[in-house]
Design a binder for these strands. Structure first.
Lengths: 168, 168
DNA sequence: TGAATATACTAGGACATCCAACGTTTAGGC
DNA sequence: GCCTAAACGTTGGATGTCCTAGTATATTCA
């Protein structure tokens, strides 16, 4: 889909912003646009790594979350909150994961409204295998230096806290 | 869709990774996940700012690109390359923008294969207004300190260069 | 008990992305 | 000059995400 460009299009945009008298917001614009593009690149890598497992990133995240939960089960609404996604998206993901035999729905023992999502044995295996693949194929060579990784975690952590993701 | 959580779910994931013996990739995993989440937050802000203009981010990017192009026109394939998206995605965006009267297709004067995308007067106004809105509502208060903005531009710029986005 | 709230599902729609395939047009090798 | 290869944009199909709205059920609290 793309050969390398001769010039950085985001740096170009930043220059355009400055020339049009928006110099005060040119840098933040460039940073935000760069985050958008970086996410695109990373997502493509992750999805191509997960494809052999029949997983998308959204479904993998849910699987990984369940894998870390005690007893491998979580209520739907907890999963929605922890993954920061819309409840209907969780329903959608669970539908597909259930159809693939990786998770199962079960009624909550005391609260009749909530349904628990539970990892099946097959789902636990898939979670482990997919995680191993991501670790070796993506996370071990992230494209950031260790120092930059540290900076990113700090910068984006502060951003997310200020955005209301969590209080800590 | 979300009240603040009591703890940072990404920091939590990082801890889980370390406890499972994947300490060597725990930090990159956290950084990459943070980029994913940050992109989500920023995209939501941008889209809600663009909504009154009947624009999505993908369509706005195309509009802004045309607005900076000399003569307000670009070939489809140039737009595809500069925006780093699949040609069919550009077709999709142009279809919708054309239906909204913001751009127009026209044949290339010398190369019969390529079609030019051209800003209409209405499109140029929309581009200017939407940019002004983004500048005041999003980019002026990005949620990053000026120093962090600078770091992000450098770190993500290097990443994108290494990923083959551009050569410079 | 009754009203407000919480939970999850269904249905429908908007949107973006990618892929395979196609017709048209151009360019390059011979 | 011709013919093959490549480039370009489009179509149709598939996938996937998110959102809104409405429904049904269950819980909580006044």
């Amino acid at each position: 889909m793309g050969n390398p460009l001769s010039r950085d299009p985001i740096a170009e945009a930043q220059r355009n912003w400055e020339e049009h008298g928006w110099g005060d917001v040119a840098a933040p614009m460039a940073a935000i646009t760069a985050i958008m593009r970086t996410q695109q690149i990373l997502l493509a890598r992750i999805e191509s790594t997960l494809k052999p497992f029949g997983l998308t990133f959204a479904r993998y995240e849910l699987l990984a979350l369940l894998n870390f939960a005690r007893k491998g089960a979580l209520p739907m609404n907890k999963a929605s909150a922890l993954l920061q996604v819309h409840p209907t998206s969780v329903t959608n993901s669970v539908d597909r994961l259930e159809r693939a035999g990786l998770v199962a729905r079960s009624p909550h023992p005391t609260d009749g409204r909530t349904t628990l999502i539970e990892l099946t044995a097959k789902g636990r295996t898939a979670a482990k295998d997919a995680t191993a693949a991501l670790n070796t194929e993506v996370f071990s060579t992230p494209g950031f230096s260790p120092g930059d990784v540290k900076d990113l975690i700090r910068i984006l952590g502060e951003f997310r806290r200020n955005a209301g993701d969590f209080e800590d």
